[in-house]
Structures are given as structure tokens and as C-alpha cells.
């Protein structure tokens, strides 16, 4: 039972909690864009915290875990932005009452 072990366990647990919130957000949110928000943010931090916890438990794996974390930090927002753009261009329905400046600008242009 070491200090690193306790910190690692707590980090992994909080990471799992954020992943849980991401799942809950996916189920509860009313439209695609809000789901994307919950999905992207909470999974990014959840995964990073879990990886950090694993690095505390096994310091010899820290470099490889850091690489996975950096990779996720860079690619996760990109994939959700690309997906959000595709969904908006194909006219995915939005929750009632959404103000949409992008659709307004699209209509002005031919």
C-alpha cells in the first residue's frame, strides 16, 4: 500500500466517474450537438484521468500512457468537430429553441 497506489486508484475512480457522466449525457441530452458536447468533454477528461491513474500505479508505463493521452487529447476534439460539421451540413434536427447563426449565414449566401 503506497502513496502512489492510493493516488492512482483515486484518479482511476474519478476518471471512471467522468466516463459514467459521458454515458449519462449521451442518454439524457435532447439533440445530437448537445450529446456531442457531453460525449467529447467528459470522455476526454475521463480517459486522461484513468491513464494518469494507471501511470501512478505503474510508473514504468508512464511514457506510453502519456503518448496515448496526448493522442486522445489531439484527436478527440477533431473527430467531434468533423462530425458536428457533417451533421450540420446534412441538416440534423436540433432541440427546440436553438438559435442558429450558421444556418442564417448559409441562407444569405447562394
Amino acid at each position: 500500500m503506497t502513496i502512489g497506489g492510493i493516488i492512482g486508484g483515486i484518479l482511476m475512480l474519478s476518471g471512471a466517474a467522468f466516463l459514467f457522466l459521458a454515458g449519462l449525457g449521451l442518454v439524457r441530452m435532447p439533440d445530437l450537438f448537445n450529446r456531442l458536447q457531453a460525449g467529447t468533454k467528459a470522455t476526454t477528461l475521463g480517459t486522461l484521468l484513468t491513464l494518469a491513474g494507471a501511470a501512478c500505479l505503474r510508473p514504468d508505463w508512464a511514457v506510453k500512457l502519456l503518448l496515448i493521452g496526448l493522442f486522445i487529447l489531439f484527436t478527440n476534439p477533431i473527430s467531434s468537430q468533423v462530425l458536428a460539421r457533417a451533421a450540420h451540413r446534412t441538416g440534423t434536427p436540433q432541440a427546440a429553441g436553438t438559435v442558429d447563426r450558421l444556418a442564417e449565414d448559409r441562407e444569405k449566401r447562394p
Partner: peptide, 28 residues
């Protein structure tokens, strides 16, 4: 706890309703 998150995402994956929703669920 992570397993429960997986089940939530699976629910969204099966329910949809649009293709993009399924992709978000798949990514999660």
C-alpha cells in the same frame, strides 16, 4: 462504473435516431 458508461453508450447506439448519433455513441 466504466462498464455502466458502456451500457449507456450502447443504448444510444441502438436507439439512434440519426446516423451521427450512432457515431457519437460508437466513439464513446
Amino acid at each position: 462504473v466504466t462498464g455502466i458508461a458502456f451500457l449507456f453508450a450502447l443504448y444510444r447506439f441502438l436507439k439512434g435516431p440519426t446516423a451521427a448519433d450512432r457515431v457519437v455513441a460508437f466513439d464513446t
